[in-house]
Design a protein around this nucleic acid. Structure first.
Lengths: 343, 343
DNA sequence: CGAGGTAATGTTATCGCTAACAAGATCAGC
DNA sequence: GCTGATCTTGTTAGCGATAACATTACCTCG
C-alpha cells in the first residue's frame, strides 16, 4: 500500500491530539468541548475551539463509531425504482435527516422479498447505522421485517398496517375516500376504480377507501379493474372502460395510471371530463399539465419523512423499540378532470 | 449509557477474536482469510470460514475504516430534486455500486452553489468515503469542484465539459442533433427549440446540438424559446408557439416540457403530429402514454452510472486522480409525435 | 483556616481491526 | 541431516475517538 513516512504525518488530517497539543490541553478536554460536556471552563472551551478552527480539525467518524458502537448514519432500504412516491420520499427523508445531523446511506433492493430485505438490512447493520428506515409498501416485506433482529431502531414507511414495527403511512384509505366522494359529489351514480398491483398496501388501502365511500353513499360497487402503477396498465384499463358507457367516473390508483386512461379515452373519442371524469393519486408535478389537468390526491411526503425520522430518533434516544404508528392525511387537489355526468 | 455486564459479552455481536478462538487460530489469520491473503493453508481457511458461518460473524466496518483510513462507502452529492434524470442516475448508481461492494451515502443539497457543494463534500470526507460522485449539471457547480482538495477520488456527472475533474456525461449534443435531424428528415423546413434552464450544461449541450443539426442542413435557426424543466414552462412556451404557424416542428429539451407543449397545442386546436411535430428528451416512463405517444431521446443512465463507478474505482485503486472523460451516447426512440408537415 | 464538596482537567483502557514484524513449520538441495 | 529459502502463523502496536476513573484546582462553610 502507501509508504508511511515522517512527512506523511504533516499531510495527514489533524487528529484530536493535535488539537489538544495546540490548545495546551489533553485530548479528553477536546472531546468534551466537541460533545458539549458541561464541565469545561469557558476560557478553555474557546481556546480549544480556536485550535480546532486553526487546524481545520474534523472528528473522525469511524473512530467515534468504533468506540460508541453507533454511527451518525441512517440506512434507508428501498426498492430500486424511479417511481414517484418512493423517490420523493427518499429525497424528503434525506433532507430532514441532514438537518438533524444524520447522513443517509441508501441500500436499494431489486425485489422487496424476504432475502433481499434481510440482506440490505444486514449490510446497513455492518455500517453500524443508528437506525434503519424501510420503504416497504408490499406484503412480501412484512414477513421479512418481522423476522429481523430488533436491536437497531427501525421504522417502516407505507408498510403493513397490521405490522408490529414502528410505522409511518400515508392515509391511503382517507385519500381514496376523498377521491371517490369528490366524484360522487359531482353527481356520478358510482365510481370505477383502476387499482395498483395487488401486493402493495397502498393499493389495498386505496381500494378499501374507494369501497367505503361507495358503501357510505349507498352506491353500487362496480368490478375492480386491476393494474400496476404504469401508464401502460392504465391505457389497457382505459381501452376497456371506454367501451363501458355507464363508467362515467374513474378513480385511478395513481397519476400514471390516470395518464394511460386519459390517452385511451382520447383515442376512443371519449372526452374528459365531459363524458368521463377521472381522479388520480400522487399529484406528480406534471399532473397539472395532463390533458385535461388532473384532479388528484396529494400525499405530504415531507410530513411522512419528518414523522419517520421523529419515530426513529425517539427510538435512538430512548434506546427501546417503538411500535407507534403515525398516519399522514393527504389532500385533494382539484383541477379539471371532474365534471357532472352528461345524462 | 448502557451498563456493561458479563452477560453483555454474550449478547454483543461476535468480533474477530471470537472467530479466532473458535477456529483455534489467531485473529490475524482470520483477518487474512477475510481479505483473501494468499498465504493461508486451505485447511485453515476452511476452518475459519466455518467458524465465521457458525457465529454469524460480520466484520466491523468502523474498525476497518479507522485503521485503513478508507471506507467502503461512496458519497453522492446531488441536488435534492425529484427530477427524472438525477433520480434515475442515483438509482442506477446505487445499483452498480452495491454490486461492486460499496454502500452509497447520499448528501443532497438545496442549491448547487459553491458553499453547499463544499459542505456536502466535507460531510462525506468526515465519513472517510472512498470516493465521491457529484451530479453537477449546472455552471455554479464547476467553480466549487475545482476549488476542492483532491485527495479523495472524485467524479462528476453531467458537469462542465471544460472541467478538469474526471467526468461522465450523457452526450447531450449528439442526442439533440438526432432529435433535430429526425424532425428535419420528416420534411420540416426548420426546427424550433424550447430549452431547459440556461445554467444547466444539459441545456447548453442540447442547444448546441440543435443548432449544429440546423446549420449542417442549411436550415434557418429560429429564435430560442427558453424554459426550465417543468411542464408549466412547456405549457407557456407552447401557448406562444401555437400562434406561430410556421413553427411546425419543435424539439423540447425534456419530456415534461414536451408534455406542457402538447397540452397547449391541444387547447389551441393544433393537432400533434398533423399540424405540429414534437420530440422530447429523457424518455420518462410515461412518455409512451402522452397524447400522442412522444418521440424522444433516451439517455442510458445505467451506462452512465457504470462509467462513473469505473472511473471512481480506477482512481481508488491506482491512488491518483484521473481527469479522463467518458461520454455516453443516447438513442432516439421513435413514437407518434413526428409526421411530415401539412403543407 | 482546614474539611469537604464540586468543578475542571488529566490518565489510562478500550472498541475491532490491519500492518509490520517475529517466529515456527516445511521443504529443497547438497 | 543441515542450511537457507519459502510458506504459514502468531505477536505486538497502533488507528482516533469515548468512558471510567484519578487527580488537581477552586470554592464554601463551620
Amino acid at each position: 500500500m502507501s509508504d508511511k513516512t515522517v512527512s506523511d504525518r504533516t499531510l495527514r488530517s489533524p487528529a484530536m491530539t493535535d488539537v489538544a497539543r495546540l490548545a495546551g490541553v489533553s485530548h479528553q478536554t477536546v472531546s468534551r468541548v466537541l460533545n458539549d460536556h458541561p464541565n469545561v471552563r469557558e476560557q478553555t472551551r474557546l481556546r480549544v475551539r480556536a485550535a480546532i478552527a486553526e487546524l481545520g480539525y474534523r472528528p473522525n467518524r469511524a473512530a467515534r463509531t468504533l468506540v460508541t458502537g453507533r454511527s451518525q448514519l441512517i440506512g434507508v432500504v428501498a426498492q430500486n425504482s424511479t417511481l414517484y412516491g418512493p423517490a420523493s420520499l427518499l429525497a424528503a427523508f434525506e433532507q430532514v435527516a441532514a438537518e438533524a445531523g444524520f447522513a443517509v446511506s441508501v441500500g436499494s433492493v431489486r425485489l422487496l422479498d424476504h432475502r433481499s430485505i434481510a440482506e440490505a438490512v444486514e449490510r446497513h447493520l455492518d455500517q453500524r447505522v443508528a437506525g434503519i428506515m424501510v420503504i416497504a409498501p408490499v406484503t412480501s416485506a412484512t414477513a421479512a421485517l418481522d423476522g429481523l433482529r430488533t436491536d437497531v431502531p427501525l421504522v417502516s414507511v407505507d408498510g403493513d398496517p397490521a405490522s408490529t414495527t414502528a410505522l409511518v403511512t400515508v392515509d391511503q384509505v382517507a385519500g381514496a375516500r376523498d377521491a371517490t366522494r369528490c366524484l360522487l359529489a359531482a353527481g356520478h351514480r358510482t365510481v370505477w376504480h383502476v387499482s395498483g398491483p395487488p401486493d402493495w398496501f397502498d393499493s389495498a388501502g386505496r381500494i378499501e377507501g374507494w369501497q367505503q365511500a361507495l358503501r357510505e353513499a349507498g352506491a353500487e360497487v362496480p368490478p375492480l379493474v386491476s393494474g400496476d402503477w404504469t401508464a401502460a396498465a392504465g391505457y389497457r384499463a382505459g381501452q376497456m372502460l371506454a367501451r363501458v358507457p355507464e363508467a362515467t367516473a374513474i378513480f385511478a390508483a395513481n397519476d400514471h395510471l390516470a395518464l394511460g386512461i386519459l390517452r385511451a379515452m382520447s383515442e376512443r373519442g371519449r372526452r374528459v371530463p365531459e363524458d368521463v371524469s377521472i381522479v388520480g393519486f400522487d399529484d406528480v408535478p406534471e399532473a397539472a399539465y395532463f390533458i385535461p389537468p388532473l384532479t388528484t390526491i396529494r400525499p405530504d411526503f415531507p410530513a411522512v419523512a419528518r414523522a419517520g425520522l421523529a419515530l426513529l430518533l425517539e427510538q435512538i434516544e430512548s434506546g427501546r423499540p417503538a411500535s407507534r404508528r403515525e398516519t399522514i392525511a393527504p389532500t385533494l387537489v382539484t383541477r379539471d378532470s371532474v365534471a357532472p355526468p352528461a345524462a
